[in-house]
Amino acid sequence: MSALDWPHHLLTLDDWAELPETAEFHVEVVEGVLAVSPRPVWFHQRSLVRLTYWLEEQLPPSLSAGADVEVVVSEVPLTVRVPDVVVTTAAVAETNPARVDVADVSLVVEVLSEGTKRTDRVTKLFEYADAGIEHYWILDLDAPVSLITHRLVDGDYENFGEFSGKVELDFGGTALTIDLDALVAGRAQRP
C-alpha cells in the first residue's frame, strides 16, 4: 500500500486504528495528519532495545518500560506519537494495550535519527511538556553517545543534565545506571 492510498482527511482515533501496519515506515499522527519517516537503522534499534531492557530491569515493580509504544497525546485534533521508549505504570502495561494515554506516561525517550532530529529536539520537547509528561530524555548515538534529560517544572522542561559514558540517574527516587557507550557496542553488557 502506498502513502497515496491512505486517508486524505484529518484522522480520528478510529481512522488511526484502522490504518494498515507498515514495516516500511515509522508512522505517527500529528494534529490529524500522518507523519511518515524512514524506519530507524540498526544502531538505533539496538540501542532502544537495550535501553528498554535496562530500564525494565531497574525500575520498581510499579513501573514498566516498553519500546515503540503508541501514545495518544491528544484526541482532538488527534496526535499519536510512537516514542522509542516509554515508561508507564505496570498496571497499564499488564493490560497489553494497543496504545497508552499520555496521562499514564512518566518518561519518554527519543533516539535521534537523521530524519527526526529537529522534531525530537524542538517539536516533541514542547508537545510532551504541554501534554504533562514528567520526564523527556533525548539520546544521541553520534560519538560520543550522549543523553540529555529533561524534567517538567511548572509546565516547561528544564534540562536536568547532559551525560556521556556511564550514567547514574535518579528517576523518581529510583537509581538507574545506564552505560551509554554499551547501547551501541557490538555485544551488550549489563549496566
Rank of each mutant, 00 (worst) to 15 (best):
F126Y: 08
A91S: 13
A131L: 08
S47Q: 09
A91P: 03
I133M: 01
G66E: 06
V71R: 07
V86H: 00
V102Q: 08
E110Y: 13
R39N: 01
G115Q: 10
L48D: 10
V85T: 10
R81C: 05
R50Y: 07
A65Q: 10
V122A: 05
Y53S: 02
L139H: 04
T123S: 07
A103I: 09
S47V: 13
V85C: 10
S64L: 02
E56M: 03
V73F: 03
L139R: 14
A90L: 01
L51F: 14
G115L: 00
V111Q: 08
Y136K: 08
A131R: 09
P60E: 08
E94N: 14
T89Y: 10
S47I: 09
T123R: 15
E56S: 11
T116F: 14
T116D: 07
D120I: 14
S47R: 11
L51C: 09
I138R: 11
R121F: 01
S62L: 10
A131V: 04
V69S: 02
P40N: 02
Y136E: 03
V76S: 10
G115R: 13
E110A: 11
E56N: 13
I138F: 08
P97Q: 09
F126S: 08
V41S: 04
V87M: 09
I133C: 04
E75R: 15
A67R: 14
V49I: 10
R39G: 00
S74Y: 05
P40K: 03
L78W: 06
Y128I: 05
V73D: 05
V80P: 06
H44K: 09
T116S: 15
V76C: 09
P61I: 05
S106H: 07
R121M: 07
S74D: 13
N96D: 13
W42I: 05
R39D: 00
W137T: 05
S113E: 05
P83T: 01
E70R: 15
D84P: 06
V71M: 12
K124P: 06
F126P: 00
G132V: 05
N96V: 06
T79F: 06
V49Y: 03
V87R: 13
S106E: 09
D84C: 05
G115V: 02
D130K: 12
A90H: 06
W137G: 00
V80Y: 14
A93H: 11
V41N: 03
L78P: 08
W42Y: 13
R39V: 12
A103Y: 02
P61Q: 11
A129E: 11
L59R: 13
P83G: 00
V100K: 03
G115C: 00
V85I: 14
H135K: 13
V76D: 06
V76N: 14
S64N: 04
V49E: 01
V109N: 05
R118T: 12
W54Y: 04
L55D: 03
T88F: 09
E70N: 15
R50C: 00
E57P: 01
R46G: 05
V69I: 15
G115P: 06
